[in-house]
Simulated scan of single mutants.
Amino acid sequence: MPTTPTRAAERNDAGPARDRRAGLLYGLGAYGLWGLLPLYFVTIGIASPLEIVSNRVVWSLLFCALLLTATRSWPQLAVLLRDRGSMLRLSVAAVLIAVNWLTYTYAVLNGHAVEASLGYFINPLVSTALGVLILKERLNRVQWTAMGFGLLAVLVLTFAYGSLPVIALTLAFSFGLYGFVKNRVGRTAGAVTTLSVETAVLALPAAGYMAWILSRDEATVLSSGPTHFWLMAASGIITAVPLLLFGAAARRLPLSTIGTLQYLAPVLQFILALTLLNEEMPVERWIGFGLVWVAIILLTVDMMRRPGIRRRADASAAASARARESEAATAPPH
């Protein structure tokens, strides 16, 4: 029996719908794991932040080698290694992500998890500012209003903390610049290959530091029992898996959805800081965070509104083109 048009249309719509559902699950998984990361650092808190980050680099590189083998991505890595421009950008990205990892680990282990979550709330504002300063992008009224709320929030939090929120700003700018640099690498380089290059760039100093503290009997990775060793070794998986989930989500979801999902991570970090890590939240900080959240809402609404505006503009342009074609077809010859 021939397939009816309705059933065919339903089948055609089912594929994208499944992709969107899968993408949403992948995105929730990625940002959920990043949001729960403080729990992992607390379990290995007997190690210093520098030892944790060094182990994270070394074990991530080993895990990436396994992933490259499993996905047969060594040829793509070889192509990337021959691209001098991409290698330079990924080397800069490696330094930026190392600064980000080290700052975040220090913050969680030293009672600054709330401020760390603030950094990732501020990050979209920093990315917008980088677009203006570096790419000379123009902001609309809503975006300028959001930036104003963000600046006011930093001023309020500076008063609340008694100094600039250095940890939050370091996290926001290091990750904002990291995303900017990675964006210049292009879409042809996958998450596994770029992460492999970044960890390879950091591997030598990380391994050197580990060898130095091992020689001084200051390393915890081999001296604090098998549970601690395997938790440290798991850092490779904990680093790579959310990135892979994020890559899978980004291929299936519109940018506006990804932009909204990204706030799940700092929200979870903020909740963990208040409930499990028992960090204080005076009234002034609530005001500062509230201003940041207003800025985020404005940016999110603007980001979700733009695709609709573009679609309406495209539809209007197409309608105008069809009208002109119709007029040309019916007009008498000259």
Rank of each mutant, 00 (worst) to 15 (best):
V142L: 13
A78W: 13
R187W: 05
L298F: 13
S326E: 14
N110Y: 07
L28G: 04
R138F: 05
P226K: 04
L277E: 00
L274K: 02
A107F: 08
K136G: 09
T170R: 10
I238R: 00
G162L: 02
L231I: 07
I213E: 11
L50I: 12
L169T: 12
E280M: 11
A168W: 00
A240D: 09
L125H: 01
R187T: 15
M210D: 11
L24Q: 07
V221E: 07
V181W: 02
D19F: 03
T4K: 05
V154R: 03
L67P: 10
E218N: 09
T4N: 09
V95A: 15
A206D: 07
L25G: 10
A234D: 02
Y178P: 06
N183L: 11
L68A: 03
A17E: 12
G148V: 08
T4C: 10
Y40R: 00
G186A: 12
A146P: 00
A14D: 11
S163I: 07
L245R: 01
V42F: 05
P226I: 05
S174E: 03
G29F: 01
A191F: 06
I213N: 10
N12T: 11
S163M: 08
I309W: 13
H112F: 11
V142T: 13
K182A: 05
L164Y: 11
L195A: 13
R18E: 10
E284N: 13
L102R: 03
T300C: 12
A319L: 13
F149T: 04
V292Y: 06
I52R: 00
L264G: 01
S60T: 11
V132Y: 06
T105K: 00
W286G: 12
F41N: 00
G259V: 02
I237F: 15
F289Y: 15
S73G: 15
